[in-house]
Design a protein around this nucleic acid. Structure first.
Lengths: 231, 231
DNA sequence: CAAAATCTGTCATGGGGTGACACATGTCGT
DNA sequence: ACGACATGTGTCACCCCATGACAGATTTTG
């Protein structure tokens, strides 16, 4: 039942499964990029790896799950980054640094993240509602874990204190706002990480939002002086 | 083509359509409450109103869409409430007041909102991932509209200034956090509106999050004095 | 009343997702 | 190395969601 304590990657069976899984992900992303997410059927993905559709669903609960694989890894490394931040750092700052760091890794290909795939996913998020929805769902689910970690960091009971919940929600919210801003094309950069950083900055200003047009935070650095026109 | 300028609810056809639509929604919610969302098939809903399944899909793009009907109305009235807030009010305060006001209406049955249905939806959000996902999706889509309204209110260009986007995101985030808190059972109340108000309060404190365990915001009013234990 | 527009049911189709069962392939004890 | 066992896979059958196409019914319009 238990692994035989000798082989580190225990068992040829396990290795085979791992290979199949990776092959499925690879094939899926290739096809998604070629013909788009919706236009790609599970059968095609399975055929490309020479397994049955039924087997596909033994590896992934849904077609969207393949895409979430990437997001899952992002989330995991974000938790690591977060744990690595000095305890002295304010919570929101730690979240901001961790989040930005992960996105930078995705963009630059660090930690084994594939930048091309990262771009592909962003495209699919915009074009395929199903992917978008599942991604939101996934993010919201994971938010609970972030809450736990933050509560620990704040040394506070998350079943009583609201703040960890809100902090986790804010980081999640920052991602989505950044994505939206990026998709809307209002940014002068294509780097998700940069936009995310700015979104966090606006949030940390926080009550900036209470004032009218004072200290605006523009996206376009190049036209710094330009006052925001009254629409 | 255009309405004949005489009948206010122009056309018997239009009225019939309206009736069918409402019947579908009614039947759907009844069945959802009886057997749950997943266990209810579109065919059953259609049969209950004596139309074909095909017709159902001419009224709703998906089964989840029926549920989103309610959310759509919430959103509409929230926009109205928002527009009704005095211009002098800070943005986040206006959002908070508008949002809380709408939820109160849902709980108390004002403005034609059905409290029972409101509860039913919350249940489904917890038990049916599909509903949950679509709801998130819908909220995110609507966030864009909120952004527009806020930008107008701030007299700022939303294609350049980040703040309206973030503010809209925050209000959306507040809803989700409140829902999560409510679902987790950590609140001493079942009133969504109250929890939402507290979440907004935490957000408006904002940099509260930077500090460790200072000025905690507890959910349980009854144990006000109790310090948050270190887990 | 006739013509045009629109709604509806029926039919066919396709893709996502799951349970059941038989078979094949890896794993483990001796 | 051999059998007993566990686990992964393919096939099959099935359900449900969703959509396009077409014909018939109903409403609107002139």
């Amino acid at each position: 039942m238990e692994q035989s304590c000798v082989t580190p990657t225990a068992g040829r069976r396990e290795r085979k499964k791992q290979r199949t899984r990776e092959s499925l992900v690879d094939a899926a992303f290739r096809l998604f990029q070629e013909k788009g997410f919706e236009a790609t059927t599970v059968e095609e993905i399975a055929d490309a790896v020479d397994v049955s559709s039924r087997t596909f669903f033994r590896y992934f609960a849904s077609k969207e799950d393949v895409v979430l694989t990437y997001q899952e890894e992002q989330f995991t490394t974000m938790l690591e980054e977060l744990a690595a931040r000095p305890k002295a750092e304010p919570v929101m700052t730690a979240l901001r640094n961790a989040a930005v760091s992960v996105l930078r890794a995705c963009e630059d290909g660090d930690y084994g993240f594939d930048p091309e795939r990262f771009g592909c996913i962003q495209q699919m998020m915009e074009s395929s509602p199903a992917v978008f929805g599942r991604s939101l769902e996934h993010g919201q689910k994971k938010q609970a874990e972030i809450t736990r970690v933050i509560a620990e960091r704040m040394d506070v009971d998350p079943t009583v204190d609201l703040r960890p919940h809100v902090a986790a929600g804010l980081s999640n919210c920052a991602f989505r706002s950044a994505f939206e801003v990026l998709a809307s094309g209002m940014a002068d950069t294509a780097r998700f990480s940069e936009v995310l950083d700015k979104v966090f900055a606006v949030m940390e200003d926080g009550l900036n939002l209470r004032l009218a047009a004072e200290t605006p935070c523009l996206m376009t650095d190049t036209v710094e002086e330009k006052k925001t026109p009254s629409r």
